[in-house]
Design a protein around this nucleic acid. Structure first.
Length: 399
DNA sequence: TCTTGTGTATTTTCTCCGGC
DNA sequence: GCCGGAGAAAATACACAAGA
């Protein structure tokens, strides 16, 4: 008997209520949220007045320095330093100190350009907030391409300003094009009143104004975060959401953009249903899943509105590769770079609260192999949709 | 000399565009 | 139509230069 039909037989003969484990998890999560007296949904938007006041206070500091005949300096918290970040199991990676800072001086040749760029973008943001209009980072770049040089510098400075003023990028009236897609048992209303239904066979682009979403209606029993668009499309083609159980699927197409992360957080705040991650069994897949669950260092100052610490790792687990006897020819050897990435992931502060994750990563280190989700099709073309995921959900195969 | 800051490289995903 | 390159969005790691 083939492995595929053996699993199918096991599924059919199972006496347990389908997905009762998912429902149990749902109840546990609801209770844990209710028990958290200090729990609050992702914060509301900072008022426009507030943002304008903070920009004015920065400008006032510069004017004061000039009036004293001193060179103005902008002190930015270092967004790439782990020394400014601490781990809180209920929030994820959070910027708690500003012991490491970057000083952008206007009297220093190496930072005078950045100083000018910061002031230019601050002035653009001030006008946008004042006029209640919005612009994309690309709009800002084309505003003065000679000054900015590349769009990368605009991206970095917008996030630096967001961190400096302690307000979200949305509150600065700066948008980024969403790259994520969502599908499944979900209806909601956009800020402009447009009613969106995600239940059709076509996926819906994740909104670029998540805070404006209201009237969310769903009878989904769980949310499935899918790392890659290719896997997402495959599950969509197989009608995974409708066939298996009412659910919501979302993909951020690789490293997730802010809107996809905000959308997952919005669904968690509203529905309190289990959220599972389906990623490649490689260091980058684990990193992507960690960004949804614990956040990133660079955006740790906004962790309270971006992370969902209840995210569970559903697959593809390194131990699944052995358990399912995935053919050796579809497994890939770990590269030197993968090994470095894995070693750095094992040092992350949140790993101490995830012993099962740690064991899986150590297993990857031992076996020296990685695998993509698509490698499951080597067992059977429909293995992922009809066997792997249903069994994982039925038999509590998440960690 | 050591620390800090900056720039580059690399990874993931996908889309778009031009050439063959 | 297919292929390759560029670009976009997100991330981290590392090398090198500058300043204290």
């Amino acid at each position: 008997m083939s492995r595929c039909s053996a699993y199918a037989k096991k599924m059919n003969s199972a006496s347990v209520e389908p997905f009762s484990e998912v429902d149990k998890l749902h109840i546990d999560l609801k209770h844990s949220v209710e028990a958290m007296t200090d729990w609050q949904p992702a914060g509301g938007e900072t008022s426009a007045r507030h943002v304008l006041e903070r920009i004015e206070s920065v400008i006032l500091g510069i004017v004061t320095s000039l009036s004293k005949d001193e060179a103005p300096v902008l002190v930015l918290p270092n967004r790439s330093s782990w020394t400014n970040v601490s781990f809180d199991s209920s929030v994820g990676l959070q910027m708690t100190s500003e012991s490491s800072v970057t000083s952008v001086r206007c009297d220093c040749a190496s930072s005078v350009t950045k100083f000018a760029q910061l002031l230019k973008i601050l002035s653009v943001i001030y006008k946008l907030v004042q006029s209640d209009s919005f612009a994309t980072k690309r709009d800002i770049f084309y505003n003065n391409t000679r000054l900015f040089g590349s769009q990368t510098s605009v991206d970095t400075i917008v996030d630096d300003i967001s961190c400096l003023l302690k307000v979200s990028r949305r509150a600065l009236h700066v948008l980024a094009t969403s790259k994520g897609f969502i599908s499944g048992d979900l209806c909601y209303m956009e800020s402009d009143g447009t009613r969106i239904s995600c239940s059709s066979s076509q996926a819906v682009a994740v909104s670029s104004n998540i805070s404006g979403i209201r009237n969310i209606v769903s009878s989904a029993r769980f949310v499935l975060i899918v790392e890659k668009d290719a896997t997402f499309q495959r599950l969509l083609d197989d009608d995974f959401c409708a066939k298996l159980s009412p659910c919501i699927m979302i993909t951020g197409k690789g490293v997730p953009d802010l809107n996809s992360r905000l959308m997952v957080r919005k669904l968690w705040d509203t529905l309190h249903i289990p959220i599972f991650a389906l990623v490649d069994a490689d260091p980058h897949g684990i990193e992507i899943m960690s960004i949804y669950k614990y956040g990133s260092v660079a955006m740790s100052f906004e962790a309270h509105s971006l992370t969902v610490p209840s995210v569970m790792w559903l697959g593809l687990l390194p131990s699944d590769l052995q358990r399912l006897r995935v053919p050796q020819d579809v497994l890939l050897p770990l590269t030197k770079r993968d090994e470095c990435k894995l070693a750095s992931l094992l040092k992350r502060p949140y790993l101490s609260s995830q012993p099962q994750w740690k064991r899986e990563m150590e297993l990857m280190q031992q076996t020296q192999v990685k695998a993509e989700i698509q490698s499951l099709s080597a067992i059977a073309p429909d293995f992922l949709t009809n066997i792997y995921l249903p069994n994982k959900l039925r038999y509590k195969g998440w960690i």
